[in-house]
Amino acid sequence: MRPTNQLEQWEWIEAYHRGTLSADERLIFEQELKRDPDFSRECAQLLAADKALRELALAETVRNAVRSELAAPPKPIQRLRLGRGRLASVLVACVLLVIGYLTFSRVDLESYRQDVTLTQRYRESEDDIAGPDLTPQQRTFYREFFDAQAYLANGQPQLAIANLEKLARVDNLRPYFKQAVQWHLLNAYLLNRQPDNADATFQLLDQSGQSVYPISTSDRWKVWWQIRWQKLGRSA
């Protein structure tokens, strides 16, 4: 039944628009719409206003959201934040890594692998290297040197040392071969854990002037460090 009170009637209209009236009430409501033009007009006015106000409220939401988004400060660039403790840990880890590398990484003499190949070739075909251009002394030198390299490659530094020490005492070697012998000897001393001999050879190389045998800076550092590491280990 249609309410007689004005406020209740407006609420009735609102309930109809919201679809909360029962089927019977909806029937009565729609009969009233047909019967009473003033009621029908009020009903249309309330519906139009409700739709408009919802639309305006949403438009305001959009405006506010845009304003808020424009006012938002740009997101700061994420930076790696390291506290002092963490920074110290990272530094310690880096230092340990460098020490580990210098201590346990083998010195890589540039021509080493190449020379081992040559050694194999020499053994397979001794005639090639013992050609007519080589003097007996040169032939002896090459044999001793390649044998020493083979010993080093096979993990027999003490045998290599014997050969290389003999070669190091030869006076008339060209600087390249002289330094090659000294570097191999130094390497053999380190492999054989003879840091004092290695150190003496290192100093000899240092004093021999311009470096003609190719050794990388990292390998020089490795040698320098491994000599000190072995001396430290012996005294500890």
């Binding site: 004005q6 406020l7 007009r41 006015q45 309330l46 206003a49």
Partner: peptide, 17 residues
């Protein structure tokens, strides 16, 4: 009550009544 009256006013304006 005031809200409904205001809505009726707005509805009338929108419908040109």
């Amino acid at each position: 009550v005031r809200k409904y009256r205001c809505m009726l006013h707005l509805g009338a304006l929108l419908r040109g009544e």
